[in-house]
Design a protein around this nucleic acid. Sequence first.
DNA 1: TAGATTGTTAATCGATTAACAATC
DNA 2: TAGATTGTTAATCGATTAACAATC
Lengths: 229, 229
Amino acid sequence: MSQEQGNAPEPTLARLTRYLRCLRRLSDEGIQTISSKQLEARLGVLSAQIRKDLSYFGEFGKPGVGYNVQHLLERLSEVMQLDREHRAVIAGAGNLGSALAGYAGFAKSPFRIVGMFDNNFSKIGRLLWNLEIQDIHELPRINQTLGATIGILTVPANAAQEVADIMVDAGIRAILNFAPAHIHVPCHIAARDVDLLRELEILSYYLDRLPAEDEAKSDTAPEADGLDS
Amino acid sequence: MSQEQGNAPEPTLARLTRYLRCLRRLSDEGIQTISSKQLEARLGVLSAQIRKDLSYFGEFGKPGVGYNVQHLLERLSEVMQLDREHRAVIAGAGNLGSALAGYAGFAKSPFRIVGMFDNNFSKIGRLLWNLEIQDIHELPRINQTLGATIGILTVPANAAQEVADIMVDAGIRAILNFAPAHIHVPCHIAARDVDLLRELEILSYYLDRLPAEDEAKSDTAPEADGLDS
DNA sequence: TAGATTGTTAATCGATTAACAATC
DNA sequence: TAGATTGTTAATCGATTAACAATC
């Protein structure tokens, strides 16, 4: 009996992205069927956990057989809404914003960078990866045409909130914030923080607190969140 | 009674970095004392949670008074080992690696980028932000001099594991992996993944699944992990 | 002292893991 | 059929929250 969507725990969503990445590879490898136990071996996630995670969204497997790779891949892509394009704008044409705008990995993803914005008049008008840098204050007007739903924030910490507000104003509904500052958004907006300095600080804690180097290689260390495939 | 360090839950460590950022600001503002209830108001983390988090590392406050900002800042910096410099090398002199190498935020952090590596002979020897790009295969030799303990991985997914292995070989003890691939490391190495595509995929899930726009601004949306201050 | 706030213990909550009946 | 594997329920585990005695 499948539960209705919308109440899946956040950790489940994070793992779902790992399952997807693994399934894409399996699909590329031409593998047609996979069991939760086989996925466990590939991902290091317990088979019971995998089945539980999937159960939030429906029944995708056959008892005694496993999952059809292609079918599961398509269903999970639907669940994550990765079966359609998502337009994104970047605010902040500095080092990081420019690097992200040129990220080659977007090509085989459903995400398209459709606009690049900044508040610096010496940058506005310049071309970056085929995109003209535009005035961030024009975002609400310009996004009526662009129709971006995702905003990527790569501005300095002290500008993060102000630019986030502009994005919300422009109809952006999900914000990925790279600025080392917390942004407050209305509850109808999704926001996530990606914070380089915080990640380094957490790694710093573990330095000199790890088990001594003695055993053979294993991957049971404090890996925050295993990406995969 | 303070517990011995080393067994703090991961979520506690993540929040600790937020407390630290807030404390630095309070210190800058010249505020000398703060209670867990006041921190709750600033951070949106329950005061009981804050006190519990701190209790993993010691007793830092005075009942009836609160915490001395400067003292708590120093103690938590020690706990996170942020009271000393950490040298880091970047592997992968592409868009992202170059952007990170030039990140201005490092200046007032304890992290120093001391080396930049790549496997592309057309890049090796070039200067980037005052650093000469060196051959990644020379990392184990060169790091005997550099003494970096942190490795930042900004190579393509298919090279991530190989380069991670070289880093481990070179004596790197913590790896921040930006490649969209899982890396396996021995259990005496700390590793964290930062994955742009995964973050976007999770945001994609929430698109069209958020409460309708009706209420006044609030920040109770599915914000993955609130950074702060 | 009275009021405030700590550090800690106990209660609650939620996520992970184990177990297993259903079924291919 | 016998063996395998699902989806789900129940047990376990761990983290968050609430409550409060200790104490400044």
